[in-house]
Amino acid sequence: MTSEPRDPPQFYLTSPAPCPYLPGKEERKVFTHLVGRRASHLNDALTHSGFRRSQTIAYRPACENCKACVSVRILCDEFAPGRTQKRVIARNDDIIAAVGASRADAEQFALFRSYLDSRHSDGGMADMAMLDYAMMVEDSHVDSRIATYRLREGGKPGRLLACCLTDVLDDGLSMVYSFYAPDAPQRSLGAYMILEHIARARALGLPHLYLGYWVAGSKKMDYKAHYLPQERLGREGWMRVG
């Protein structure tokens, strides 16, 4: 019986590309592969160090002259929703949330396509087909789940309103990718999913919810600063904010 090699992961650097967050900037990323039986352990360690996961790749920014991307995690045990966040929770009290295996289906993909066409029609994911979506959800060697949010209809789960692909880490949950119905802006479904994940992490005894990167000056990322207290990863490690 042979054991899996214990060699350290190999890291690679991408070529420069236009920054999706700050105009006029270029981005580069360092990445490695998450495969095999050690993938979950490696994903935990790299997430703690500011990496994000996409399928079987873990990556983080490695830009030469810019350090604007800052990893953010919410301190779930200490979080208390503010007035606006309480209204979001109340506004969505007719939603039924469920968590299951990371499996893609046609209903999820239809919602995903509607979201992309409405919110990100010129983005890098705009041309994704069903097979691409299935790879995004299912191509993983780590503990990953799909959270679904359905409208309660007649006391039962009805229309699919939102989904979130989520990794389960040793110290928290990591929201990998979320999408939602673009025709229900009054529900603030993106904010609701974050609030529901905070509550779920707390119920699981997990102290953190990882939100990915916050970028000062980027309107796309402003919302992440509204969930306090949180920690941001800097040169001295994770530093508390709020």
Rank of each mutant, 00 (worst) to 15 (best):
E231K: 05
S40W: 05
A98F: 06
S3Y: 05
W214P: 01
G242L: 09
T148R: 13
P20Y: 02
K219D: 12
S121W: 12
F51H: 02
Y115W: 11
V70M: 12
R91S: 13
V215C: 03
Y59T: 07
G36L: 07
S121C: 14
L169T: 03
V168P: 01
G50F: 00
V72N: 01
R6F: 06
E64G: 10
L22T: 03
E236H: 11
Y180L: 07
V35G: 00
H41T: 11
L195M: 08
R150N: 04
D77E: 15
A216S: 05
L233I: 11
L42P: 00
S49L: 13
L116V: 15
D139L: 12
P185I: 13
S3R: 10
E27P: 06
Y59N: 05
T166E: 04
P20G: 03
N92T: 05
G205D: 08
S15Y: 13
A203V: 07
P18G: 02
Y149K: 03
D143N: 09
I198D: 00
V241P: 03
D222A: 13
S15L: 14
I96D: 03
G242C: 09
C63D: 08
F11L: 13
T2K: 10
I146P: 01
L160R: 07
T56I: 12
P207M: 14
I146F: 07
G172S: 11
A184T: 15
P23A: 10
M221F: 07
K224A: 05
A147R: 06
G24I: 11
S174D: 05
R28Q: 15
L209P: 01
S102A: 15
S188I: 04
Y223C: 06
G154A: 04
R60W: 04
L75W: 01
G158N: 09
I74C: 02
F109T: 10
L160D: 02
E26P: 03
Y115E: 05
L42C: 06
F79G: 00
A58M: 10
V72D: 01
Y177R: 08
A104G: 15
I74S: 00
P81A: 02
P18L: 02
S218D: 15
M128E: 13
Y213H: 08
S54N: 09
S218E: 07
R150H: 14
Y115C: 09
R145A: 08
V137L: 15
I198H: 00
H208S: 11
E138K: 14
K220M: 11
S218R: 06
A17E: 15
G154K: 04
I96L: 14
T166V: 14
V137Q: 02
G50Q: 01
P207W: 15
Y149W: 10
Y133Q: 06
V30Y: 00
S140R: 03
L75T: 03
I57C: 04
A68I: 04
S54C: 10
L46Y: 01
R235P: 11
A62S: 10
L169G: 00
S118C: 14
R6V: 06
